Simulated assay, not measured.
Amino acid sequence: MIREGRPGDLPALRAVQSATLAEPWPDLLETAVDGPPLVLVCDRGGPVGYALAVPDVPVTYVAELAVAPDSQGEGVGTDLVTALFDRLRERGVERVRLTARAVDEGVHDFYEGLGFDVVERVPDHYESGDGLLFERSL
């Protein structure tokens, strides 16, 4: 089930965040569960993944997408992004952007499979190196 995040989800979401993301933003996640950033949670008897977006019209930025390691490869990420697209369309968003580490080819394949295109290389975006800015029209 995909639903909006709640403050009570924070401990589980932090665990997913720290287990999954190389450079997480814990403060952003804490702020987001109270809004206005949008946090969608995949709940399978407890949160196993989340998508965090900073909604703006006409372009929204997805700041984090994280799926617990033992739930990866089960469609959780795809379900979260699909639900996020639906919510953002309802809000009048026309395009979605996100950044991924330039060295994460598997992540690039995932986003390209969802219709994203690389629009820019962002030097030194991450502590560990460059990022790639992806964009997709809704």
Rank of each mutant, 00 (worst) to 15 (best):
Leu132His: 02
Pro37Ala: 11
Gly45Ile: 05
Gly115Arg: 11
Ser18Tyr: 12
Leu28Met: 09
Val59His: 04
Ala19Gln: 15
Asp109Trp: 06
Asp117Cys: 03
Met1Cys: 06
Pro11Lys: 11
Thr60Met: 09
Asp9Ala: 03
Glu94Cys: 05
Ala51Ser: 15
Val33Leu: 15
Ala12Asn: 06
Gly129Leu: 05
Glu4Val: 07
Glu112Ile: 04
Leu40Ser: 06
Asp109Leu: 14
Ser128Thr: 15
Ser71Glu: 12
Ala68Met: 03
Pro69Asn: 10
Val57Ser: 08
Ala12Arg: 15
Thr31Trp: 12
Thr78Met: 07
Gly8His: 10
Val33Asp: 09
Pro24Lys: 10
Glu64His: 12
Asp34Ala: 11
Leu84Asn: 01
Leu21Pro: 02
Gly92Tyr: 07
Arg44Trp: 02
Gly5Tyr: 00
Leu114Thr: 01
Cys42Thr: 00
Glu105Met: 10
Val62Leu: 15
Ser128Phe: 05
Pro26Glu: 10
Gly73His: 03
Ala12Val: 08
Pro37Val: 02
Tyr50Val: 00
Leu21Val: 04
Glu105Lys: 13
Pro36Lys: 13
Ala102Ile: 03
Thr82Cys: 07
Pro24Gly: 12
Arg6Ile: 07
Arg87Ile: 01
Phe116Tyr: 13
Cys42Ser: 14
Val81Thr: 08
Arg91Glu: 13
Leu133Tyr: 05
Ala68Asp: 04
Cys42Arg: 09
Asp124Gly: 12
Leu29Lys: 08
Tyr61Leu: 14
Gly129Asp: 03
Arg136Gln: 04
Val62Met: 14
Ala51Thr: 05
Leu138Cys: 06
Val39Asp: 03
Ala68Ser: 12
Ala15Cys: 02
Pro36Tyr: 07
Ala53Glu: 00
Gly45Lys: 09
Pro55Trp: 06
Val103Arg: 14
Leu132Phe: 07
Arg14Gln: 14
Arg95Phe: 03
Val39Glu: 03
Ile2Asn: 07
His125Thr: 08
Glu30Val: 05
Trp25Leu: 10
Asp124Glu: 14
Leu52Cys: 13
Ala63Thr: 01
Gln17Pro: 00
Glu94Gln: 11
Val54His: 03
Asp86Gly: 12
Arg97Ile: 11
Val122Glu: 15
Val76Ala: 07
Val122Arg: 14
Thr82Asn: 10
Val76Trp: 07
Leu132Glu: 04
Leu114Tyr: 01
Ser18Trp: 12
Phe134Asn: 01
Val62Gln: 06
Pro47Phe: 01
Gly106Thr: 02
Arg95Met: 02
Arg44Lys: 07
Val16Leu: 13
Val54Cys: 09
Gly129Thr: 01
Ile2Ser: 11
Val16Ile: 13
Tyr126Ser: 08
Val67Ser: 03
Leu114Ser: 04
Val119His: 12
Leu133Ile: 01
Pro123Thr: 11
Val93Trp: 06
Thr78Cys: 06
Asp117Trp: 07
Gly75Ala: 14
Gly49Ile: 00
Arg136Phe: 01
Asp124Ala: 15
Gly46Met: 13
Asp70His: 14
Phe116Lys: 06
Val107Arg: 10
Leu10Met: 05
Glu94Thr: 09
Val39Ser: 08
Ser128Arg: 14
Leu98Thr: 03
Glu112Tyr: 00
Gly113Asn: 08
Ala102Lys: 05
Arg97Lys: 15
Thr60His: 06
